[in-house]
Amino acid sequence: MAAIAAIAAISLQPMGAFGPLALMFALLVAASLLARLGPWRLVRGAFVALPFMLIALPLVFTRPGDPLGSISLGPLHLTVSGEGLRAFATIALKSWLSVQVALLLTYTTPFHDLLDALRELRLPRILVSIIGFMYRYLAVIGDEAQRLLRARASRSALAEGAAGGGSIAWRARVTGNMVGSLFLRSYERSERVYDAMIARGFEGTFRHLGLRPITTGEWIAFASVLVALAAWAVATHLWWNPS
């Protein structure tokens, strides 16, 4: 929950609020170090957000403002504006920080704790069960998919530099066949899983051990994080003057 509040607070930051965002980054790094996560892992994980930054890139050129310089790309003549550059940098920073918060959550919390949390948040039971099963069989089905990919790669060995054979429609059909057989293997596995559950006395509902109670200390920590985040968001709007 604190993670979601933090991301919301980041998103609410105004344009060009680099100071507050830098402060948040410093805090996040500190928290990650406290959790004994290597900085390298966090940086690597953050690359997932990169392709999306391309969408914000045109801002650099389209936002009206004082021209800082211009680039000529053949027939295209693009003008870089200070305003646009600032908007782009803000958006890129915001999404990067948000990814960092989410990474902090997933790298510090075991998956079954996350599931318990979802259950406590009153997510419908069937959804929690599906997510739990999905997580459990992700690696199994993923390996199945890897085997199919390896099989395709070995069927289509290619001399160095030679062009690949087949039309696009043919390639798509091969891929579709792989998806189809992966579906059949998954379906049959789910039947075996269900039979195994029945054999172990499954009666239609899942039982699980009681939840670990939330301690007072955790409540206090949660509340103070919320208060700090709210203060952070309000303070930048009041006192940070981006000019």
């Binding site: 069989y137 993923g142 696009i168 891929t175 379906y187 789910s190």
Partner: peptide
């Protein structure tokens, strides 16, 4: 429940499959 859970894993894994289209781009599901 087990069917849908395994099917979710299937969709996730099926998104790994891609095929080359042209110029370094690839189609996937």
């Amino acid at each position: 429940v087990p069917l849908l859970g395994v099917m979710a894993a299937f969709i996730f894994a099926a998104q790994m499959f891609n095929f080359p289209v042209a110029g370094g781009t690839s189609g996937h599901l």
